[in-house]
């Protein structure tokens, strides 16, 4: 897809590679994030998203390639990178025996914020994430969603240029997830660039200005959600007939059919035209060849379809990482 104008790019990654022993977790990826956008890494667990993010936030040493964040090289100038970013880690990283206020105060002190500014900022943020009433509550008494909101508030404490969110809604219930999306959008509208990793299609689709699908350490495709879906054509038609093999042969000849994928009981057509207009033609073509249609379905491509199309598999949703799942179960720690 198109490359961002370097003037506007706030994160630029070129030929990044990272190995754990023989295993290539990140395999020669390049991408850039524009100032002010929400950019998502969408991919299954183990795709290399967290490794990439950990390199950008300077927690992992860069092995090969080049990465600049907020104009600073992560290898040469990690100190300035650290000051320009806020992070919400994948696993909950709160001290369960500290209060909400103490968590934010600690962060402010860690980043050397002067006291008057810390005070103002903590008030602002508690209001933003609606935790004012929980100010003096120990974090172990917070619900999963509250913990996440607190972590987002912490990530914003120092008014970072870029907020990194590693799987921000993993393990949260649907309502809480939607609330989180509202917060994230709100933060973005205030001018913070957001870099997000997720394995939820809906999350990437709903939040992101641009998405990179990543799998096995490689960027498979990048673009806006609309662009990605459009690469699959305008509509997707699913058909089952009494002779799928022959039907596929015939339909390949139609000019508006872009791509056919065979499934276990039928096949899907990706079509360049409005599916509702082309459907009668398809039905006629099959009937004229003396075959019978048993099932028909027509839908707009979703991110799931995009993902399945480009990676050849469904997103394995094996949920939370063990540490986090445990954390949520235990209601803390």
């Amino acid at each position: 897809m198109e490359h961002a104008d370097p003037e506007q790019a706030i994160i630029v990654v070129e030929n990044l590679e990272h190995r754990y022993g023989d295993f290539k977790a990140v395999d020669n990826i390049s991408f850039s994030v524009k100032k002010g956008e929400i950019f998502s890494f969408l991919g299954p667990n183990g795709a290399g998203k967290s490794t990439a993010i950990n390199i950008l936030i300077t927690l992992l040493f860069l092995q090969k390639g080049k990465a600049t964040v907020a104009g600073y090289d992560v290898t040469k100038d990690p100190q300035n990178v650290r000051e320009s970013i806020g992070i919400v880690f994948q696993d909950i990283t709160l001290d369960r025996d500290m209060t909400v206020w103490e968590i934010l105060e600690f962060h402010g002190r860690l980043y050397n914020m002067p006291e008057p500014e810390r005070r103002v900022r903590i008030d602002e943020l508690l209001k933003l994430v609606q935790l004012e009433a929980k100010r003096d509550a120990l974090t172990k008494r917070l619900s999963g969603g509250m913990k996440r909101r607190l972590e987002i508030a912490r990530g914003l404490m120092t008014r970072p240029k870029i907020l990194f969110l590693d799987e921000p809604t993993i393990g949260l219930d649907p309502q809480t997830r939607m609330r989180m999306w509202e917060y994230i959008k709100g933060v973005n509208e205030e001018g913070t660039t957001i870099f997000l990793t997720t394995h939820y299609m809906d999350e990437a689709d709903l939040l992101s200005d641009r998405i990179s699908i990543i799998d096995h350490g490689k960027v498979i495709i990048s673009g806006t959600s609309w662009e990605l879906k459009n690469t699959l054509g305008q509509d997707i038609i699913y058909l089952e007939t009494n002779n799928n093999g022959a039907a596929v042969q015939i339909l390949r000849g139609l000019p508006s059919v872009r791509e056919i994928k065979e499934k276990s009981h039928g096949f899907t057509l990706m079509v360049n035209e409005d599916g509702t207009k082309i459907l009668p033609t398809i039905i006629d073509t099959i009937r004229n060849a003396g075959m019978e249609i048993t099932t028909i379905n027509l839908k707009k491509p979703t991110m799931d379809d995009v993902f399945v199309f480009y990676t050849g598999k469904d997103l394995r949703d094996d949920g939370a990482s063990p540490a986090r799942a445990q954390h949520l179960r235990a209601g803390g720690r």
């Binding site: 650290r82 992070i87 990283t93 001290d95 860690l110 980043y111 050397n112 912490r154 540490a323």
Partner: peptide, 15 residues
Amino acid sequence: DKNWGLMREILASPM
């Protein structure tokens, strides 16, 4: 902190 707490936050900070 390393396993469940603030260590990542601390290590990623400018301190």
